[in-house]
Design a binder for these strands. Structure first.
Lengths: 160, 160
DNA sequence: CTTAATAGTTAACAAGGGTTAACTATATCA
DNA sequence: TGATATAGTTAACCCTTGTTAACTATTAAG
């Protein structure tokens, strides 16, 4: 078996295992907080960007501006988002996360990474160092694959 | 910095990169085929189990039996599922994937793993062997973490 | 044989979340 | 200044997909 095949299989297997662990935790959390995919998507986008206008949320999620407006509405009512006027262009409403919103999203990230601690504990000191080197190599390579897409919109956008 | 911290960071980073690539492809595919999370969830469960009764689909996805029945209905109409009577207990309707259904799900898995080939190509032969070893180590460790959950139900179950 | 339990369907209904159309407020251009 | 474009909201509507309740068919138990 050629090395490329060996590597390929190993990576595929790893991806499989990873899916079970990481996405399971994340989705469980998503269900717990009782938010839809679109709602989480909107919150994550805003988390990444700091703030943005209503229309751009719609564009990025692939929904119409009215839909985005209603979406923001609900999240404002849940005290996860705040709307405020843009001082430079008063047509624009700038949307930002509340403290509660920020905490919620950070919780989600933490949920996703929780099992990592468990995994870490199973390795000896030396193993950890070696594995870290491998991981860094792969991260670097992946980063140079070009077209580094944003996770969020694709993951949580509207399905047509 | 202790080795555990180094490893932890490297793994977290890798998970992050991985999410972008693998889940993006999978979700893009999901959007393309125009199926809901629940529908994909049902198809994947049946794919894994070969066949199962309607009620158990409901249980596993966390929805009521009527909801499961309707869900199956729609998927049968799309020619992704088949319903047939269980010969041993004629109350039971056994649900199986059609050829089209099987192909669809396999396509989804392939979409998820597509970028892996690109990544493989960026490494030399020796690198690939070394990295494969690291990956296998981690897979093994992850598999022994206990409570090896099924991917599908959590990922695609009903949110309450 | 009658009664109770189980698998599934059907019907009526509700909520979430999308759409288009019509409107308001602000900004820009000629 | 007046006409037009842009950001956002509101309203009316519709589809998907969940729910509960009522029903049928089959099996199991006394």
């Amino acid at each position: 078996m050629p090395n490329s095949k060996i590597f390929n299989q190993a990576l595929t297997e790893w991806v499989h295992v990873f899916m079970r662990r990481s996405m399971q935790a994340f989705t469980r959390w998503m269900n717990e907080v009782g938010l839809s995919r679109t709602q989480i998507g909107a919150l994550m986008r805003i988390y990444n960007q700091g703030h943005c206008p209503v229309t751009s949320i719609g564009n990025e999620l692939g929904i119409t501006t009215p839909a985005a407006s209603q979406l923001v509405d609900r999240l404002v009512q849940m005290d996860l988002l705040e709307r405020s006027e843009d001082l430079e262009d008063r047509r624009v409403k700038v949307v930002t996360l509340t403290e509660a919103g920020k905490e919620l999203i950070q919780e989600g990230f933490m949920a996703k990474n929780e099992w990592i601690n468990d995994l870490t504990a199973t390795f000896s000191d030396d193993e950890q160092l070696a594995l870290a080197a491998s991981l860094n190599t792969m991260v670097e390579a992946a980063n140079q694959l070009g077209e580094d897409p944003e996770l969020i919109p694709e993951l949580f956008g509207h399905r047509m």
